[in-house]
Design a binder for these strands. Structure first.
Length: 759
DNA sequence: GACCACTAGAATGAT
DNA sequence: TCTAGTGGTC
């Protein structure tokens, strides 16, 4: 099989250099993913390694999926047996097999950031620190940073600083709470795997032998535990290939240590270094703009990117009156870009998820189909988390966070009072308190979980009969579900949980549109389970639950399949490319973020993020900002981002604002680019129409309205945008409408409530 | 104990 | 603007 003839000489060298350490310094758009995929395919097809002897690690699920697809299409096989996964998924998988080697239960549960928050709030309560002096999120972030540096509570400077003392105590409490619940957070997944390989050289050698070839993507973003993990797996054979670009390091806040990539040649003196500097993605204008911005960073290695796509359209810059105007402009720009090249894609990138809503509304109003990547995650929805909690309880009833979450969902008469008496119960030692079903779980002795207290309370009848009955019913429910997990398929388990817990019944009886939506989501969860079973190499309920906990972008439902506007944060755009890229909110304090403006190191990271954003574009870049922006409901005026000023003027084209308030503060303040729209006819923004729009519901009342509601009629919904009525069905005092919307698909509405306007 | 209405606080990024 | 948490009422 000829896997290399389509590659340039440097790419080819990177693919064919299979033995020993290899460092690939890959500039943006230099075909990095392509090289890794070819390298994996080459290793497998040349017989150098069996498919399950190749390990490829990435940072995001999206990148892993992309990699797998590329390798599969190169080899013409499914590459299910290859280990191509994220760091966290790899660790979860290793720990599921080997946890007992470090005294950990195999049935650990993975706590996501919400679960972490719950634990931390509980810890704060137990310390009597509810006054808000210590914010749970801040404490968690401090703890996570310490963990990423592989430091414990003792690393906090507690001698004279009471606040640091709190962090240290909270660290201890938090660690204990997770251990008691047999839970690992995201950081623990990495740390425990490192610990596993430290404490069991035999296991380390077993996996090092197994994975004879290891590849790591985005190596510039690895943190200390990730670095050690890779070292452990490759120290004996040194067949390690890492790929990265220091200019694209954007995860310092997650503990990424640039030294890992900068010192690679020191760690592996015999390393072969390959530089990929030819860019196949962007026009010269885009590359020049991106290079000019990143050149402002002092802490970097000079790098030369070149392309044969000379010239190109200038970078467009638009300063909007406010965030609404910005969103409208973005929608217009997307429409124009997609019209000029049908079938192409445009991506709207933003610094913070909070910006997505306004942009989303703008696209919807314009009738553009779009898809949001990331953001409100599927598994973070209430109903999904509830179901997940039941599944987690079935696997590990000591998971206190899950137990608290669902013990009274749906309501079964276990309220605050009962929970208080539960908490204060003191069960007998765990050895004979747990039911036989879970006897094997308590690998390490810990303080009693809520579950063991519950078992005790029920068996010793320690509460009032009414509460006792409710608790007993819950206990047998969990036991029944646990039994199920041992004998049924994953999808069946999920279905049974929904059925036996009464969760689905409760939602069905609600008869609201919201409840129906939740039911749909739960059905989707069952389908996801089915799909998981057909795809996974060794399907298990625990594996499915892990996957959900580690999944970030299962949010596939917004927008139709053929939508070509994608919305995502700059962080999740890393590794992707689009013909047109729009970066929104280029304002001081937003991008660069306010937390970075006073700190040189953080500012450089923001600039790298800007570099990542610019280099996603193939043909066109549009940068927008808003002179005032709504924050928590009221307006704040803003200053354009310094990053805009860092792009040479000759590469830039300013788009005059269509709608600019005459009394705006802007214009007077700004020297360099203060002449927006000069020489152009300036149209002033009308006040947004605030009077209630006339709706069909109003017309129904006065009966005089001609036309009204007929299938085929074009209407506009304030949220869903333009659409066409599909069917009309009269009800007692209202009308049921089915409307197909361009942006969101078909919806069933009540004429009375949906404020439809004639379009 | 369940439900509802009110209010305070919120949001950098992702596994 | 939206949401999680709280306190009051049935």
């Amino acid at each position: 099989m000829d896997l290399v003839s389509s590659l340039n000489p440097e790419q080819r060298a990177a693919v064919l250099q299979t033995s020993g350490p290899v460092l690939i310094l890959a500039g943006a758009g230099s075909g990095k993913t392509r090289v890794i995929a070819h390298r994996i395919a080459h290793l497998a097809s040349s017989g150098l390694a069996p498919p399950d002897g190749i390990l490829a690690v990435t940072f995001t699920n999206k990148a892993a999926e992309e990699m797998r697809l590329r390798v599969a299409s190169l080899l013409g096989t499914d590459c299910r047996s290859m280990w191509i996964s994220t760091f966290h998924a790899l660790c979860a998988r290793l720990l599921r097999r080997e946890a007992p080697l470090i005294g950990l239960s195999r049935d650990f549960v993975i706590y996501d950031s919400n679960d972490q928050l719950t634990v931390m709030k509980q810890a704060l309560r137990s310390l009597g620190l509810e006054d808000g002096a210590v914010q749970p999120r801040v404490a968690l972030s401090r703890i996570s940073h310490a963990k990423n540096r592989m430091e414990g509570p003792e690393s906090f400077d507690t001698a004279w600083n009471p606040r640091e003392q709190h962090f240290a105590t909270l660290f201890t409490l938090y660690t204990k709470a997770l251990a008691d619940a047999r839970a690992l957070d995201f950081d623990d997944l990495l740390l425990k795997t490192v610990e596993l390989f430290e404490r069991s050289p035999a296991a380390r050698e077993r996996y090092a032998r197994r994975f004879g070839y290891v590849m790591v993507d985005e190596y510039q973003d690895t943190n200390r535990p990730q670095y050690l993990l890779i070292q452990a797996l490759t120290a004996s054979h040194r067949n390690l290939c890492v790929v990265g670009d220091p200019d694209q390091s954007i995860y310092k806040w997650r503990g990424a240590d640039l030294r890992n990539i900068l010192d690679f040649e020191r760690d592996f003196p015999e390393a072969v270094v390959v530089r990929l500097e030819r860019n196949y993605r962007s026009t010269q204008v885009i590359l020049d703009a991106a290079s000019a911005v990143i050149a402002k960073n002092r802490n970097r290695k000079e790098k030369r990117l070149y392309t044969e796509l000379a010239g190109g359209a200038r970078i467009q810059i638009y300063r909007a009156a406010d965030d609404l105007d910005e969103a409208e402009f973005i929608a217009r720009t997307c429409r124009r870009a997609l019209q000029s090249t049908p079938g192409s894609q445009a991506a709207v990138l933003y610094r913070t998820n909070a910006q997505s809503r306004t942009i989303e509304d703008g696209l919807r109003r314009a009738g553009m189909a779009y898809r949001i990547i990331g953001g409100v995650r599927f598994y973070e929805r209430k109903e999904i988390k509830d179901t997940l909690s039941y599944l987690r309880l079935a696997l590990n009833p000591h998971d206190d966070v899950s137990l608290r979450r669902v013990i009274n969902v749906p309501a079964r008469g276990i309220g605050k009072g009962v929970m208080d008496s539960l908490e204060s119960a003191t069960p007998a030692p765990p050895s004979h308190s747990a039911s036989p079903l879970f006897a094997g779980l308590s690998v390490e002795e810990g303080p009693p979980s809520l579950w063991s207290k519950l078992v005790e309370v029920v068996e010793q009848r320690l509460v009032a009969p009414r509460a006792g009955t409710a608790l007993a019913a819950f206990k047998s429910l969990v036991e029944e579900l646990a039994q199920l997990t041992t004998e049924s398929s994953v999808a069946v388990c999920v279905g049974k949980v929904l059925d036996r817990s009464g969760y689905l019944k409760d939602l069905r009886e609600e008869h609201s549109e919201e409840a129906d939506g939740r039911i749909e989501n739960l059905q989707e969860l069952v389908s996801a389970a089915r799909e998981y079973e057909s795809r996974a190499a060794e399907p298990s309920l625990a594996g499915f639950v892990d996957q959900l906990a580690l999944l970030s972008d299962a949010d596939e439902e917004a927008g139709s399949r053929d939508s070509h506007v994608l919305m995502m944060t700059l962080h999740s755009a890393k590794g992707l490319e689009f013909p047109t890229v729009i970066i929104a909110g280029l304002e001081e304090g937003l991008f660069p973020h306010s937390r970075a403006v006073d700190d040189d190191a953080e500012l450089e990271e923001e600039r790298r993020l800007c570099y990542v954003g610019l280099t996603r574009a193939q043909r066109a870049v549009v940068l927008t900002s808003a002179a005032r922006r709504r924050v928590f409901g009221d307006y704040q005026s803003t200053e354009a981002s310094r990053f805009i000023d860092e792009i040479p003027l000759e590469l830039v084209e300013e788009i005059p604002s269509r709608a600019f308030a005459a009394n705006s503060l802007y214009g007077a303040q700004h020297g360099r680019r203060g002449d927006y729209g000069s020489g152009q006819a300036r149209t002033f923004r009308r006040e947004p129409r605030r009077e209630e729009p006339r709706t069909y519901a109003d017309e129904d009342e006065d009966q005089s309205a001609p036309g009204g509601l007929k299938p085929g009629r074009r209407v506009t919904h304030p949220l869903f945008g333009p659409g066409t009525i599909v069917s009309v069905e009269p009800l007692d005092d209202d009308t049921k409408l089915v409307v197909r919307f361009a942006a969101v698909g078909t919806k069933t509405l009540r004429a009375k409530y949906a404020k439809l306007q004639p379009a």
